[in-house]
Design a protein around this nucleic acid. Structure first.
Lengths: 200, 200
DNA sequence: CACATTTCTTAATCTAGTTCAATTTTTTGG
DNA sequence: CCAAAAAATTGAACTAGATTAAGAAATGTG
């Protein structure tokens, strides 16, 4: 039940068995079917979640209705609209399942209690956010400074599991191009590699 | 001396006078002339800084040597390469002064001590990073979904002091266009507004 | 297993922003 | 206050990627 989340936390902080039990007492299981919303823009996020099974997309919708994917998350990832959750006001993020998904969740009040009772969690979440901010910074830089082909290749290399599990149009959104253009990029790459493979 | 930084911290956490004194004991003043590096890519960041006077740019250099501005910072802002500072390894950020600048700095060891002695700082820095991550997310979304003109107008509205103090080519970099194109955007805006002003 | 829906591909046309190069304007430090 | 550097402008030619539209392939579901 808690193996995955305990291991996730142990990457950054060390807790006593009692502290772990206390932490577990705050958690709830939530289950979602494929293509369900975990959160919609305009809502206030009442919990943070940790994925024990499944796959989600976290995105913003622009005025034309285009999805702009902030991130995908699979097993062993934390998900949520952090600003909405901590500031207790409506956010602009959608979180939607791509597969049937199971979360361990912690609600706002429990989270405050947890941070109070075990201040190490303050550090834990700081580290998580720090890393996600760094990743976002690098992605932003790459998106503005490298062509779509390079971004696609980096994505495939960095998130091979995601490539297996989410439709290509969503990967296009993540790397910041239209599905049509990603399709062309892939066609060009396929031609290149077939040449390399000496016409087999 | 510490008025500005104390007020900055008081926005998110409440400290006793003794805790504040303890905090102050970790700080050092550092002064830089205009166009000096506070940090260069490839170096490990040994401190975080709080600007008491001046203005800096925080940027990444791409392989062609183009600056990609992550953010500007004026008085009352924290600056640093957070990943490099916390993970104690070389980063890819440049931090360079745009004006003569004075910082209050805290080095790595003092920071660890501070987080240990006053765990509220763990919360304080979590909140700072959370907000900067949110800002970055919104900026990334805007950059991919809105035209340069809208981004420029939003920048001017959000950071009027920065517009006064940094060269326009750096603002171009921030909003993600070439200096030439920003110049054209501004020319178009000037024409528009002169029309509106009924030819005065 | 078939039909409806979703996803992917292909191609033609279009555009926001880039690049390069030359010129003008502004800022600065001696 | 002036020379030199830095910053901003302008214009012409170009391109990465968007848009639109239609068809092909894959996938899910009664």
């Amino acid at each position: 039940m808690f193996e995955l989340i305990d291991a996730n936390i142990a990457k950054h902080i060390t807790l006593s068995p009692q502290e772990l039990d206390h932490f577990h007492s705050f958690l709830h299981v939530k289950k979602y079917k494929k293509k369900q919303f975990i959160l919609q823009a305009g809502e206030t996020s009442h919990f943070q979640g940790f994925i024990t099974k499944g796959c989600i997309k976290n995105y913003i919708l622009d005025e034309k209705g285009h999805e702009f994917i902030m991130y995908f998350a699979l097993e062993d990832w934390w998900v949520g609209d952090i600003m909405s959750f901590y500031e207790r006001k409506p956010g602009n993020l959608f979180i939607e399942t791509i597969e049937d998904t199971e979360l361990l969740t912690i609600d706002h009040q429990s989270n405050e209690q947890l941070l109070h009772d075990i201040p190490q969690f303050e550090r834990f979440f700081r580290i998580l956010i720090q890393r996600s901010a760094y990743t976002l910074q690098q992605r932003f830089f790459n998106t503005l400074s490298k062509p779509a082909e390079a971004r696609y290749l980096e994505f495939v290399k960095k998130y091979p599991q995601v490539v297996q599990r989410v439709p290509q149009q969503l990967i296009a959104s993540y790397i910041g191009v239209t599905p049509e253009f990603l399709s062309k990029v892939r066609a060009k790459l396929a031609k290149k590699s077939s040449k390399t493979e000496a016409g087999s």
